[in-house]
Design a protein around this nucleic acid. Structure first.
Lengths: 187, 187
DNA sequence: ATGAATATGTACTGATCGGTAAACTTTAGC
DNA sequence: GCTAAAGTTTACCGATCAGTACATATTCAT
């Protein structure tokens, strides 16, 4: 268990950053919430920013891996998988402690477009876009880049709407929209 | 010019909050950037939170008013106006200093769903949803609530995607998607 | 069992946080 | 021209910010 304390730190810090935000989470709060001493934190990461970047890297990995696995279990054709991504979204929204997309929030708190945290958030979205575009291409869509982007737009829209509007079901309406767009792109 | 200093404060503070974020903007920075003394600020607003709420109120008003006017100038039928909203979006994305939606960011920095700032951000989105739903109804859509929500999802998705992904044109793809959804809802 | 790496607690730095106190100056209505 | 409101400067409060120093304790491979 040599480097595991570091991973444990990143894992727990990730939860706190996701729950409370980046600027609102001080290093002293992290000491309390993660159980890792401040001295140890600064042995592993030279700055708070580096710790945030590590947390975002972990989030990107675990989020995308589990999302893709979910999708691939639920559906098998590329077209069905595009649609299934919205069912995965709906499940996510129902989870306790759902607080929207960590990368949208990171981009919102670190707005300069050349900031490392902003860049890492952008990279995550680019990977998501690539995944949807790939599925659209495999599904035989006429303009896969366009359909992939539209699927992404619906997802991002649903994610932020699910945070702010409790009275509507964005995942359902987004899926219905995706179905229409998909039909039209395959016709 | 009695109460105008207050309005000037709110107007300038709004710009700084939008540019730099809420937690990242301290009251001392606002003194420098707005030219209003700290004592005066606290004469007008008892807390930073009240100042933020006033800034958000102003933003909601001016943003919605100018957006609706733009839309109503560009198009005249309800259906065309739904589509024109994406042209207004595209123009917004091109503006210098575009930094996404202030209310999405407010909801991201103040995440507790009963927080006054979170509630105010949610109220803005609800008003936007109502507007689109109303247009969808007037356009004769089969399920106006559904179409209104889908338009909103595309808009929100485009807004956050325009912040993070510089290499694609979310407003264009969102408009094309809206066109398809609209056709299908009117058929 | 020992040595080296890794962890810890405590105490601290200077800067900044939101917010206040008090004394002084400007502005505007009568 | 006087009065009172509204604005200002300057200095301050205790708390918290990110980050560091240092001495001690725990862990682990040999």
């Amino acid at each position: 268990m040599r480097p595991n304390k570091r991973d444990e730190l990143v894992r727990n810090a990730l939860q706190v950053f996701y729950r409370d935000g980046f600027h609102a989470t001080g290093m002293d709060k992290l000491v309390v919430e993660t159980g890792v001493s401040k001295t140890s934190m600064y042995k592993h990461f030279r700055t708070k920013e580096e710790l945030i970047l590590a947390a975002l890297r972990l989030r990107d990995e675990s989020f995308r891996i589990s999302l893709l696995r979910q999708i691939e279990e639920m559906a098998h054709s590329p077209a069905d998988r595009l649609l299934a991504s919205f069912d995965a979204l709906a499940q996510w929204f129902e989870e306790d402690g759902y607080r929207g997309c960590m990368f949208i929030k990171a981009g919102a708190e670190y707005q300069e477009s050349d900031h490392p945290i902003h860049l890492q958030a952008a990279e995550h979205k680019r990977l998501m876009l690539d995944y949807f575009t790939d599925l659209a291409r495999k599904a035989g869509a006429r303009e896969p880049e366009k359909l992939g982007c539209q699927i992404l737009l619906l997802q991002e829209g649903a994610i932020v709407t699910a945070v702010l509007l409790k009275n509507c079901e964005p995942a359902r309406d987004a899926k219905a929209a995706a179905q229409v767009l998909l039909d039209q792109a395959l016709a």
